[in-house]
Amino acid sequence: MNDVTYKGHTLSAIALSEHNLYSATVFVRAPSGDQRCSTLMGRFPSAILALGYAFKYGMAVIDCRPAPAYE
């Protein structure tokens, strides 16, 4: 699992592969300990792109912004 800290929250992302494509999910843990999990997101050509999207998604959740578009 990969972790990033953003505005005091911990984001943990996992990329999963299936048929040479990658999806990701992100867990967002608030400073209070409350935790949320996204659904499985995307179909990306690499794990790096899937994880990058998952972290962008988690940051958008923290900032109360719309989810980023798949790139």
Rank of each mutant, 00 (worst) to 15 (best):
L11G: 09
A30P: 00
G42Y: 08
G52K: 14
T10P: 02
V4P: 03
F27G: 07
D3P: 02
S46K: 03
Y22M: 04
S32L: 05
S17H: 11
P45T: 01
A54M: 09
A15R: 02
R29V: 08
K7G: 10
M41D: 04
Y70L: 09
T5H: 05
H19S: 15
Y53W: 05
N20W: 05
T39I: 13
L49Q: 12
N2M: 11
G8P: 08
I48S: 10
D63T: 00
E71L: 05
R43L: 14
F55L: 03
F27W: 13
H19T: 12
I48A: 09
P45S: 01
T25A: 12
R65D: 12
A30N: 02
G33H: 05
V4A: 11
A47I: 07
G8H: 04
S38R: 01
C64I: 13
Y6N: 12
Y53V: 00
S46N: 02
L16K: 15
K56E: 12
H9S: 01
C64L: 12
Y70N: 08
K7W: 11
A47G: 14
Y22T: 03
A30V: 02
F27H: 10
R43G: 15
S23G: 03
P31E: 06
N2P: 03
G58R: 00
G42I: 02
Y57S: 01
P31L: 06
I14L: 15
T39A: 15
L11N: 08
A54H: 03
L49S: 02
E18K: 15
Y6S: 07
M1Q: 08
T25K: 02
V28I: 14
L49V: 00
L40G: 08
T10L: 12
E18L: 15
K7M: 11
P66N: 07
M41T: 13
A24H: 05
I48L: 10
C37E: 11
L16H: 08
A50Q: 00
T5K: 04
L51N: 14
I62L: 13
S17F: 09
A24S: 14
G52Y: 01
I62Q: 03
R65E: 15
F55V: 07
N2W: 03
M59D: 07
P45V: 13
S23L: 00
I62Y: 10
A30H: 11
N2E: 15
F55G: 00
M41R: 02
S32Y: 04
D3K: 15
R65T: 05
V26T: 10
N2V: 13
A15V: 01
T10I: 14
P66C: 09
T25R: 11
L11T: 06
A15E: 05
L49C: 05
A30W: 13
T10D: 03
A47D: 13
V61I: 06
V4N: 13
L40A: 12
A69R: 11
P31Q: 01
P45A: 12
F44Q: 09
V4I: 12
S46V: 03
G33N: 00
T10H: 11
S46Y: 11
E71T: 05
L51R: 10
N20M: 02
Y22P: 06
E71R: 04
G58H: 11
G52C: 09
A30T: 03
S17N: 15
H19K: 15
V26G: 06
D63N: 13
P31M: 06
